[in-house]
Amino acid sequence: MAAKITACFTFLKEALILPTLNPKLFAPVLLFFAVTAFLDPLVHVVFVQPLGDGMASRLTEINNTDPSSAEYGKLVEKFMETEEMKQVGKRMLRITIAQFTVGPALGLVKQILALFAASTTYSGDRYSLAGLLSELVSGRISLKGPSITIAVVGALDFAGAVLAALRYHVMGGRSGVLSVQGLVSLLAHLASLCFTVIALVGVAASVADSRKCRGVRALRQAWRLVTRVRRKEGLVLVLVAYLGPTVVAPLHRFALGYSKSSMAACLCLMAVYALLSGAQQLFSLAAATVYYYQAMENKE
């Protein structure tokens, strides 16, 4: 029994070892993951939070003023019409646009880099980052399959977000744990976790076999592997996908708590968070890749 339980975690052990087999590739990939993970809280602390604090102080001043007084009207008018507030609005708009454009693009690059790094290393190749990028740019390693699968996953994610918004609207935002709404929310969350894992394995399948396995076919293949071929390991992968971000996230909130009292401490904690977050993301992608290869070997 203990041996069977241990066997379920074997692919995680191999996923941990995988980067050590090709450090010249995984080290810069991990650094890239860490830098991108550092950018988001950095933008929040350096740009968003000061703007928000400035607006909050103005609103506090307005709220503390008697609405029937003449001063209240002047403060509101000043708040709405000053050039400073217009600039704040423009900056917030630019930051929001950047987050919704640059963020997904970086996420796509990270996913492709990590999966190709894991796949090529597991297959026995020992590329450097420059070598891998050269292969990808030249087309000797095809991006078509993973790109199609990622596009399908993105479309399904969008559809899921729309359905979640509709559910929230219909249920009025109530999500008590013991209520029907709470049960539906829990099931939706579990379904989202499972889909995340199936999507990861599906994209990993597209990376490993770009010609035959892409798009919906890759996701169907991933579904069969997770639900039929290696179900226990699939459950472990779901737990990894859930527990990884959950364990790292508190450090992010802890770091932001120091943003007003000590910027140096805040930046140091954010750097630690970024490194751990990047390592966790890279490990999840490597685990999905190893899981796919081992499941396919078991299937054969």
Rank of each mutant, 00 (worst) to 15 (best):
T10Q: 08
I17Q: 11
P19A: 08
T20Q: 07
P28F: 06
F38H: 00
L39K: 00
L42C: 00
V43F: 14
V45F: 07
V46C: 08
V48L: 13
G52T: 06
D53M: 09
N63T: 13
N63M: 15
Y72T: 02
G73M: 02
G73H: 04
G73Y: 03
M80W: 07
T82R: 14
E84A: 15
G89E: 03
T96K: 04
Q99I: 06
F100T: 14
V102D: 05
G103F: 05
L113R: 09
T120V: 05
L129Y: 09
E135P: 00
V137L: 10
S138G: 06
G139S: 07
G139L: 10
K144R: 14
P146W: 00
A155Y: 08
L156H: 10
L156S: 10
V162H: 03
A165H: 13
H169C: 12
M171G: 15
S175M: 14
S185V: 04
A191D: 02
F195R: 13
T196P: 02
A204K: 00
S206Q: 08
S210I: 04
Q221H: 11
V236G: 03
V236S: 06
G244F: 06
G244T: 15
P250S: 09
P250C: 03
L251Q: 10
M263R: 14
A264R: 11
L267H: 11
M270E: 14
S277T: 01
A279T: 11
Q281F: 14
Y292E: 12
N298W: 09
